[in-house]
Design a binder for these strands. Structure first.
Lengths: 296, 296
DNA sequence: TAAAAATACTCCATAGGTATTTTAT
DNA sequence: ATAAAATACCTATGGAGTATTTTTA
């Protein structure tokens, strides 16, 4: 049995006339008769009752008609869907992101991608930078949004900056130096810092340490917490101060004020993916991200 | 595109090796390569990435694999279902019945048929004898359970008795002649009868009238009701007496007693269908009915 | 007798075979 | 050097065409 048989059968079932069906199929009548006979023989069931004058479909033929139509529809779908998959319009994409990306560009990117590629099954997982790199390596995620540590390049990962933002000092509202509009890091030499554990985000951690070193001190780390959101909470509780991306101002916590840092101090959110990934879904995602990012 | 292409594609996708796939398909490797190339050309999408050393499936190929597998499964189903339909194991059967059939054999027949032919979509409609004949004629039902009027034969309908039962007199509990175990019809000459309207069931009606005539009287019809069930209710309300099939004793209405009629007075429930109906579902139903009936 | 399906036969397109080449490891 | 896919070429099955027969309404 071939799709040809189904196509021919459907034509005859709809016309109930071999001559007309043959014309519709652009073949002549005898081969059509033969193909139907062949089909009936293969299934072992009479699909049409035909006198030389009239053709009628049998009850079993009706059942087969239903099934055959479904199969023909599906085979058209199969081709259509495969073509769409080839264009990256159908498929799966797993995205990893650090929690703070939620406060900057990620929501817009996801919204835009979902809108344009509705048939891509997008899954999002909040992962810290180190875990994202691991997950990219073994394919658990296809793209990540992270703050890359030094020397992550040349390891099969592509990196692309997507959001550059100043760092700010977050401190309790009634802190002594809150009055100033911007703060020199040097003034914080004696403060207690709340940081993200180095292991969770080495790039960001090392950068802060380096900044402090340049100002002539090593920060005293009073406490570590793995999410900026949690850190801001601890600042509100007057456990200490913290250096965080400017976008964290959006997590409006009562009793916390943000101050600019004098001199250039910034953090760059990067998009990362494995160099050799041929997935067109991924490349569509990268394109959408670039577009969204450049439109800001 | 033919089912052959799908079958070959699935084999290659599963083996990821043209040589092995060809062996599994009992063809040689070159035609297999050709068919896959042809398929890719037709869809316009590369389904496998192949070096001369390794074959791997593309993301689009994965989508096509899913679809192709579904189509192959469905086409096997199609054949299986068609064969079953041809045996009358799949399909639709509409059954008409007079309400009183519910008190005798119909429930057992339906139960048995449902059990044996679970994939037949059985629909039941309570219709009086006249409506059943009409419905049989224009195909709204395929079998009927009715009490045939005289001369219904030779009109394209097949009839077969399925349940023969004595007629009984239903009368109010405190009726004067309730003491007797059986009653001569003659004793009812002065009673008020409750009957089913002639138009609804001419066979049964005429038979009762004829019985009374033979005993020398024409019954006085006090009231008509179209269901035996209703009639028994009216007897309970002391509106009159009625002659009903013995199986109606099962409709235990308070205040009604049943008495045998002296002499032979019986009614025969018949199964009816149109002579020329080739439906195997119907013939399976007829067979089941015969079996159930003969086992009583 | 005329419309329509089946049969008889012919032809050629193409599925599938064999032999060989190419290429990546 | 070798395994494996592609290419080249050949064969023959069978799908489709034309002509004709059969059947029944």
């Amino acid at each position: 049995m071939e799709l040809r048989h189904l196509k021919y059968f459907i034509a005859v079932a709809e016309e109930l006339h071999f001559g007309r069906a043959a014309k519709r199929l652009n073949i002549s009548q005898p081969p059509l008769s033969q193909q139907i006979i062949q089909l009936e023989k293969e299934i072992g069931v009479r699909l049409f009752n035909r006198t030389k004058r009239r053709v009628e479909i049998t009850p079993a033929g009706l059942v087969f008609l239903e099934e055959a139509s479904r199969i023909m529809d599906l085979s058209e779908d199969a081709v259509r869907r495969t073509i769409r998959a080839d264009k990256g319009e159908i498929g799966r994409l797993a995205v990893g992101y650090i929690g703070s990306a939620n406060y900057s560009v990620l929501p817009q990117i996801v919204r835009e991608f979902r809108k344009r590629f509705q048939d891509v099954d997008l899954s999002l997982a909040e992962l810290n930078t180190s875990n994202q790199i691991e997950a990219l390596r073994d394919g658990r995620i296809h793209v990540g949004f992270l703050r890359p540590p030094q020397g992550i390049q040349n390891e099969g990962l592509s990196l692309e900056p997507v959001f550059r933002e100043p760092l700010m000092v977050a401190m309790p509202q009634n802190h002594q130096i809150k009055g100033k509009t911007s703060i020199s890091l040097r003034m914080l030499a004696k403060e207690s810092f709340i940081m993200i554990p180095r292991q969770r985000g080495p790039g960001f951690f090392d950068y802060i340490i380096a900044l402090c070193q340049k100002e002539g001190f090593s920060p005293h780390i009073a406490l570590e917490a793995s999410q900026f959101h949690t850190i801001i909470g601890l600042v509100a509780a007057e456990i200490g101060i913290a250096i965080v991306p400017a976008s964290m101002q959006r997590s409006r916590f009562k009793g916390v004020v943000f101050r600019m840092i004098e001199g250039r101090a910034e953090t760059v959110l990067n998009m990362a993916w494995t160099n050799d990934n041929p997935s067109l879904v991924l490349h569509n995602f990268i394109s959408v991200t670039r577009e969204v990012v450049s439109s800001i």
